[in-house]
Amino acid sequence: MSLGRRGGLVALLAPAVVFIVFLFIYPFLYGLVLSFSDPSGSFTLANYERFFGDWWERRTIWVTLWISLPVTVASVALAVPFAYYMRRGIRGEKVITFFLIVPITLGTVLVSEGMLTYMGPTGWLNQLLMAIGVVAKPVRFTHNYWGVAISLLIQGFPFSFLMLLGYISGISPDLERASQMLGASRIQTFLRVTFPLMVPGIAISFCLSFVAAFSVFPSAVLLGEPSGPTRVISISAYHWAFEEFNFNVASAISIVMAAIELLVISGVLVWRNRMYRGASIVGKG
């Protein structure tokens, strides 16, 4: 019986394990090995030196963080009050969530392509701003930092919002009522009960939004200045892999990317555990 059970278990898990080993772990380890080897295959740190030693390459980290961190913070900071406002459902919720899911589904490429015209010098947005009289000359929204940041926000905000909305609707409304009955005003209830309970959800949505923003690629090329101010780390990795065909340096950059992300994610999780000591005990939240 025990042997049969174990055999069954192995059979059930085998396809998924084979899949993850061959398509994820093996490539990742392969990349790790490549990043520490020279073209002849012997061990070297030159690939990392090449990245960190070159100011032009090294600064892609700051460029990427400089775009992705503010955008992620803004997305989540905007998402929290919106999710809070809609936690009990409101009229027109379906229409609103539909418009939120559209940019996520369509993806960066289409949004960037649309933004080029819509937010361009003669696009509708500038026409509107000038007609209202907010600005006298067209504002430059594209081919700079702001183009990339806006495109990331257009996707990052609904992503964080919908995630938080799913999370917040799982918090029992009785907890807010209980807080009120104990004498807490609406603001006190938010600060002392609702927000702390949202922390795990905020942490997760921050992590996932950050991962998406940090690996920004198509919009940094199409909407930014890929040869300068918005030369992000994924452009650099792509450049080394498919334009220089130096897979060793490209792998090193990929590893650096993954490492930075894991670093930020673990930082967020540490913060979450500080904020929410009950988390490990409460489990489901």
């Binding site: 392969y30 690996s215 792509y238 990929s254 990317m257």
Partner: peptide, 21 residues
């Protein structure tokens, strides 16, 4: 957590080594 990993690591980071393989 191993199965979760590909959802956390961004596609570009594992996509380049994967493409090479």
């Amino acid at each position: 957590s191993l199965f979760l990993l590909p959802m956390i690591v961004p596609p570009i980071a594992y996509g380049i080594p994967l493409a090479m393989v």
